[in-house]
């Protein structure tokens, strides 16, 4: 022991002989820091994007709200911004969004949940291996194609059942949108179910439970927050969907709760204005930013809710 301790100062007095590469570590250090800085900038670009979205929406809407009182925007029951007798009641557009989203979710949530439970707990290995990529492809189809399908395939089909159904309607658009959302709901729900540890399932089976009992009473409750997050993603997809509605539900603002009627949604209105040529800076131009802000606030609410749920769900296991 003592000899080692005595040896240390002796070594320290000798100038260390190191390789030249180590001697140049200062420049190397600077180079590393520069690279890190650029990588940081890339990552921070997501924050800039968010700020830019908020800045653009708020600044353009700000001009809009100086001319249109917020009260009219929220409570007026007409939306006629391009007429001489202009009204700016966002309720009209929101009703279209609400009805079409409700139809879509009535399709997507039950079917998506059943598919998730089936694939996670019931389906044989081969069925799952084939079905999952298929569903993924369903989610990869461009929405304009769904729009075409809704307008020219589903609507004529529905008109055979409901002869009075108009060519543009929220029902057909909503149903097709529901089919489009199924993969989002089913794949996230299924991931949540498969994340439920096997020993929980074994515990249930060991009590004499059947597959269905295990799936319904143990696996589904255990995966509940993940499933809820999947639903919320589905909701925000439905609210933000544009092309299916612009094509198949018409672009006529219509305050209605009836899915059998045509009606413009918030998103379809933005498309309609963008297709025309409104001068930059006109009030008509600014309405789309106000509508966009409303849309953003709705989806933001659901996204935050979903984020909180996912966080809770990660803690569970």
């Amino acid at each position: 022991m003592t000899s080692t301790v005595a040896g240390i100062p002796a070594i320290a007095t000798v100038p260390p002989i190191v390789s030249h590469r180590l001697a140049r570590r200062h420049t190397r250090h600077i180079k590393e820091r520069i690279i890190e800085f650029f990588l940081f900038l890339a990552a921070a670009s997501s924050v800039f994007t968010t700020f830019a979205i908020v800045y653009i929406l708020v600044s353009e809407s700000w001009v809009f709200f100086q001319q249109v009182p917020l009260r009219d925007f929220l409570f007026d029951t007409q939306w006629t911004p391009l007429f001489s007798d202009a009204h700016y009641g966002i309720m009209v557009l929101l009703s279209g969004t609400l009805v079409s989203s409700s139809v879509a979710l009535l399709v997507a949530i039950p079917l998506g949940t059943i598919i998730a439970i089936y694939l996670s707990e019931f389906a044989p290995f081969t069925v799952r291996e084939v079905a999952k990529p298929f569903l993924e492809l369903l989610g990869g189809v461009p929405t304009i194609i769904y729009g075409y399908f809704a307008l020219l395939f589903v609507t004529p089909l529905l008109q055979k059942i409901f002869p009075e159904l108009p060519g543009f309607n929220l029902l057909s658009a909503g149903m097709v949108m529901g089919i489009m959302i199924i993969p989002y709901v089913s794949s996230i729900s299924e991931d949540a179910m498969r994340a439920v540890p096997m020993n929980l399932r074994e515990g249930s089976y060991a009590m004499g439970a059947t597959r269905f009992q295990t799936a319904l009473r143990v696996v589904t409750p255990a995966a509940l927050s993940g499933i809820a997050a999947a639903y919320i993603l589905g909701i925000s997809r439905a609210v933000g969907e544009t092309m299916i509605l612009a094509v198949a539900a018409g672009m006529q603002p219509n305050l209605t709760w009836n899915p059998m009627e045509p009606a413009a949604t918030v998103t379809a209105y933005i498309v309609q204005v963008a297709l025309g040529d409104l001068p930059h800076g006109s009030i008509g131009y600014q309405t789309i930013f106000a509508a966009g802000l409303a849309l953003m606030l709705i989806t933001l609410f659901f996204n935050i809710l979903g984020h909180l749920l996912r966080k809770y769900y990660r803690q569970a296991y």
Partner: peptide, 10 residues
């Protein structure tokens, strides 16, 4: 989760 049309507005 931001709707694609909002990117269009941006």
């Amino acid at each position: 989760g931001v709707p694609s049309i909002v990117y269009g507005l941006l």
